[in-house]
Design a protein around this nucleic acid. Sequence first.
DNA 1: GTGTTCATGAGAATCATTCTCGCACGGCGG
DNA 2: CCGCCGTGCGAGAATGATTCTCATGAACAC
Lengths: 130, 130
Amino acid sequence: MTEAPRRQTRQRSAVLALLDDQDGFRTAQDLHALLRERGDAVGLATVYRALQALVDDGLVDVLRTEGEAAYRRCSPVHHHHLVCRSCGRTVEVADPPVERWAARVAAQHGFADVQHQLEVFGTCAACATH
Amino acid sequence: MTEAPRRQTRQRSAVLALLDDQDGFRTAQDLHALLRERGDAVGLATVYRALQALVDDGLVDVLRTEGEAAYRRCSPVHHHHLVCRSCGRTVEVADPPVERWAARVAAQHGFADVQHQLEVFGTCAACATH
DNA sequence: GTGTTCATGAGAATCATTCTCGCACGGCGG
DNA sequence: CCGCCGTGCGAGAATGATTCTCATGAACAC
């Protein structure tokens, strides 16, 4: 269970750098296409591998919606998202009450080692006016 | 935008009946296999179609985890799940506080037309002792 | 610099899900 | 009860995201 040493490569930093520039969630396929446009040739499989590693390290969040997974750079502290259904813009929100609520409900039912995932979807102000 | 009439067929009831017997979430592939074992021959595509229809009607919940989607019979009122990571057992939980919290946070950020999805994972008492 | 090891890349493989299309059956008017 | 129309069914092909394979190239330690 020892940590595998993570080797620093051009491709891996490219993926991370690209994610820093993005605003909302992006799919692996999107990111791959964007990298190629930039002239930064990276294999598709490598993009997937890099993303998995970043998720493991907690530097990136995954969102599994219909069909394909989307990724986004995030702060390393626990938080949830408010996602615009239309433009994909994302706001990170912390929520101590929900944390406590989840822990309490789980305990009541005898569940241990609790995790939770919460996503809030809506239409942001900008998109609503169009 | 009128409701398409939903035709009652042997296959559709078979899927629903099978879901009633199941305890936790089951994948479409699982359900298909189970139906065949039962000697109740139903096409895989039909299982998918039936499940989609059931989800549309709010009779079944979907859970998208890694890779494949899982379905479960559920009560038609809004609720969330407490799922055992190990055995897949599920408890439905209602949570007025979270509803309010989500609505409030969304409003603060100018988001309208809000939905949310929340799943709590843990290890249930039975599995923890093993 | 040299060697070892891990990451990369191109394409093939995998696998869940959806589509296609000809046929069967449910529901309704006669 | 009979037959029509449209929708649902089934088998297999198609799709599309993700993962695997394997030979080559690049990081890191010494």
